[in-house]
């Protein structure tokens, strides 16, 4: 399968013009691809270069080195953007117009025929819950409402590929839930999604592959499982009515966590976990749950990024 989106050694240096000839490497040698049907999470702290990457992928910026392809074409070509839906970071709309007017404009730019366009606009306004506000100018919208309109315009042309820059920013928990729900639904219908974010708990629930970047460089990449895989462990939750087993284990130095009705032990080594299971059963305890646990994406992320930053500081000092 040909990738929908490809970055090949993509680099961007911002250079200041006269009088200060500063230059800043915002992106160095970024390589990845997005395949049909997957949710691809592009993660990094603020200022890592996520928006810069997106602006290159859509042809707003010219790469300093390397290249990118959108549906196999140079993104600066008009036709490359035909099957793309894009939600910019902090979407700016012409403030004096209403949502239907703006959506109609975007639909015309995409060449959607009038009857279908109007039907689709009504459908989307309903879907993102802006029906009540459809006669109000967008300038009077709250941030969350603007973001929802941004999502609606990105879906107008039934895109094959969605590029979303911080889609949940400006949303309350319900709005975030709506986004997640929508993304799962889109994924089901075969849409690929390039999802840029620094809020990881949300991404973790839905993405297939992950790239973590920092200061314009790739720090980690792979499937969600492989990224989370390193540092995984095992968790045993058991019930121990008499408390004998727990006392016994605690005496031998095992850390036991008290839950509401149960107790929990977390260990890194599988053989160790098996041994503990035997001991608990032998002592009359009841195993409630036994499972492998990974680190959360957030833990991985913080470890990677914080690690890099301390190393960088050590080099300096």
């Amino acid at each position: 399968m040909t990738p929908l989106l490809q970055a090949n050694g993509l680099s961007k240096t911002y250079s200041a013009r006269f009088p200060k000839r500063d230059s800043f490497d915002a992106l160095s040698d970024m390589t990845f691809d997005v395949r049909p049907g997957e949710i691809f999470a592009f993660l990094g702290p603020n200022g890592a270069g996520k928006t810069t990457t997106i602006n290159l992928l859509l042809g707003f910026l010219n790469p300093t080195r390397g290249e990118c392809r959108l549906f196999g074409l140079d993104p600066r070509e008009r036709r490359a953007r035909e099957q793309v839906g894009f939600l910019p970071e902090n979407y700016a709309f012409y403030p004096a117009f209403t949502a239907p007017t703006l959506l109609n404009y975007f639909g015309r730019l995409q060449g959607i025929p009038a009857p279908e366009r109007l039907k689709r606009i009504d459908e989307l306004i309903e879907r993102v819950d802006l029906t009540e506000a459809r006669r109000r100018p967008v300038g009077k919208y709250s941030r969350g409402m603007r973001q929802r309109l941004g999502i609606a315009q990105a879906l107008l042309n039934r895109p094959k590929l969605l590029i979303l820059d911080e889609p949940t920013s400006g949303f309350d928990p319900i709005g975030r839930y709506m986004v997640r729900d929508l993304l799962s639904e889109l994924k089901q219908s075969g849409v690929s999604i390039f999802l840029c974010s620094h809020i990881l708990s949300e991404v973790e629930a839905i993405c297939d592959r992950v790239v973590i970047i920092d200061r314009g460089r790739t720090v980690r990449e792979g499937t969600l499982a492989s990224v989370l895989g390193t540092g995984r462990g095992f968790e045993i939750v058991f019930r121990d009515a008499s408390g004998d087993v727990s006392r016994d284990l605690a005496a031998r130095g095992t850390a036991i966590e008290e839950l509401e009705n149960n107790r929990r032990i977390a260990v890194n080594d599988e053989a160790e976990a098996q041994r503990l299971l035997d001991q608990i059963r032998a002592g009359g305890g009841v195993i409630v749950r036994y499972q492998a646990i990974g680190r959360s994406l957030e833990e991985t992320f913080i470890q990677d990024i914080a690690g890099r930053h301390t190393r960088a500081q050590e080099k300096v000092s």
């Binding site: 707003f60 036709r79 953007r81 894009f86 979407y91 975007f106 730019l109 995409q110």
Partner: peptide
């Protein structure tokens, strides 16, 4: 920044 919404279209 309104230009980004427009030029993202084909």
């Amino acid at each position: 920044g309104t230009i980004f919404g427009v030029l993202a279209k084909p």
